[in-house]
């Protein structure tokens, strides 16, 4: 039940894109086409789950026992950057079909602030290993839900008559505002 709560709080109530405002560069950058947003989502789910597990282990097995907490910013970002490289190599060799689907999005993920934020938040919330794994799954599923819905809307919007100075980013922001309004409705669901 507790794990269920953690998952849904991360998935809907504190949606990483629309309520927490993380990873917005990718939210506006790759959501112009449905196919790119699906590719990006699968890459985020994959990388976020692995990197949050690895950074949890590094923090609790190395940094915390040796009182090196002040190094966490530098250590986490370097861990994530090198992990992404390793995952890219592994996918290329072992699962070429999956690599073709998400390959070009992997390098972009290093600068996706949601990945680093989840590593920090899992420590700030004092999650155990399983909890932080479920938490990162919830966050990345929420990311996918929001960005795929947003891509659907933006594809439709291409046909809409939009005033000239609202075209492009301004209307995308207004659309995101209404989506965020809808997600705000999940607050207080499950009394979390």
């Amino acid at each position: 039940m507790e794990l269920f709560g953690i998952f849904f709080a991360a998935f809907l109530i504190n949606n990483i894109l629309l309520i927490r405002f993380l990873a917005l560069c990718s939210f506006f950058g790759v959501s112009t086409k449905l196919s790119t947003s699906v590719g990006m989502s699968s890459a985020v789910i994959f990388v976020m789950t692995i990197s949050s597990a690895v950074s949890w282990v590094i923090y609790h097995a190395v940094l915390f026992p040796f009182h090196l907490e002040f190094l966490r910013t530098a250590v986490f970002i370097l861990t994530i950057a090198s992990l992404v490289q390793l995952e890219e190599l592994y996918l290329k060799k072992m699962l070429p079909a999956l690599y073709r689907a998400m390959g070009i999005y992997l390098p972009l993920i290093t600068t996706n602030c949601a990945i680093l934020a989840v590593a920090f938040l899992a420590i700030d919330y004092r999650f155990g290993f399983l909890q932080s794994l479920i938490y990162s799954l919830g966050v990345s599923s929420g990311y996918s839900l929001a960005i795929i819905l947003f891509a659907y809307i933006r594809e439709r919007m291409l046909l809409a008559p939009i005033p000239k100075w609202f075209q492009g980013y301004p209307i995308a922001f207004i659309t995101a505002a209404f989506m965020s309004l809808a997600f705000l409705g999940f607050t207080n669901m499950f009394n979390l």
């Binding site: 309520i19 405002f21 922001f173």
Partner: peptide, 15 residues
């Protein structure tokens, strides 16, 4: 609240 942020920046850019 979060939607206000999106609205403000969208209108600012349009302006």
């Amino acid at each position: 609240l979060p939607p206000g942020a999106f609205i403000t920046i969208g209108l600012l850019m349009a302006g």
